[in-house]
Design a protein around this nucleic acid. Structure first.
Lengths: 133, 133
DNA sequence: ATAAAGTCTACTATGTAGATAGACAAAGTA
DNA sequence: TACTTTGTCTATCTACATAGTAGACTTTAT
């Protein structure tokens, strides 16, 4: 029922990039310092973000990171799913969602959690980076 | 962002007890069988529930468990908090909730998560066992 | 060439989830 | 009283995830 610090750092880093979008490529140490993120940890996170096409990078002097597209195209849901996996809030919700629910499972209980999951999903899907600058 | 199976089992067990409220004390093996819960695991969970005053127990022949009060007095929130801890969905939300938010923290980001946490909280607080039978 | 970046691979520590095992205690029943 | 049936307590275990750290390597601008 919580978000990992990996995801939290990823979001802070992306927002940092969005804020400094005009400044060209932003260096890892700058992002780290402004957001209190451990350097080596952020490196890994950025590589994941790059793999997903959310950011671009350049090496060497004047290198660094920058958003690959517009901040309005990146939702919280995208980032969370990338780093933390599915948003489901109870294991059965995702496990049995597409199959028949076992008789033992409580339909009403499942539906409460499904409702919560849908709310979270909508909220995260509809919030984009540009709204967080 | 998910509920542990411990909590899931606890809820299933409590609902089971609520369903069989007329039948006096319900035995652990019966609950296990009806809900596919590992026996020794459920034992521990029930002891926690008992410690919190949600259920009562009796040993020996005709022993077992029963709800301590009315099913309408037990909310999902109570059970989840008891077994999984706070409902907060991002570490900073609970960590900094009562203190000054560090400048590095993104106010808007925090408020999105706070909003989600509040929604979950309300939903879980207002859903009680008797609605799940 | 060289310095300043990012990149890749590996490792480690710590905690938590999800159990399992077995001795023990109480309560009812013959 | 002895026995059986139930819950209770304590200890232990394995697997995996989280949250990082270390260091050698590669690319690029000057």
């Amino acid at each position: 029922m919580k978000i990992s610090s990996k995801t939290e750092y990823a979001l802070l880093a992306l927002i940092d990039l969005a804020r400094h979008a005009q400044g060209g490529y932003i260096k890892i140490p700058d992002i780290c310092e402004r957001n209190s993120i451990p350097r080596k940890f952020l490196e890994q996170i950025l590589i994941t973000l790059k793999g997903a096409g959310l950011v671009r990078s350049r090496r060497g002097q004047d290198g660094g990171y920058t958003l690959a597209g517009d901040a309005s195209e990146i939702s919280l849901a995208t980032v969370i799913r990338l780093l933390d996996g599915p948003l489901a809030s109870v294991s059965s919700v995702s496990k049995y969602f597409y199959t028949k629910t076992p008789i033992e499972q409580n339909e009403k209980l499942i539906s409460v959690f499904r409702e919560v999951r849908d709310y979270i999903s909508n909220r995260m899907e509809s919030t984009t980076l540009d709204q967080l600058i």
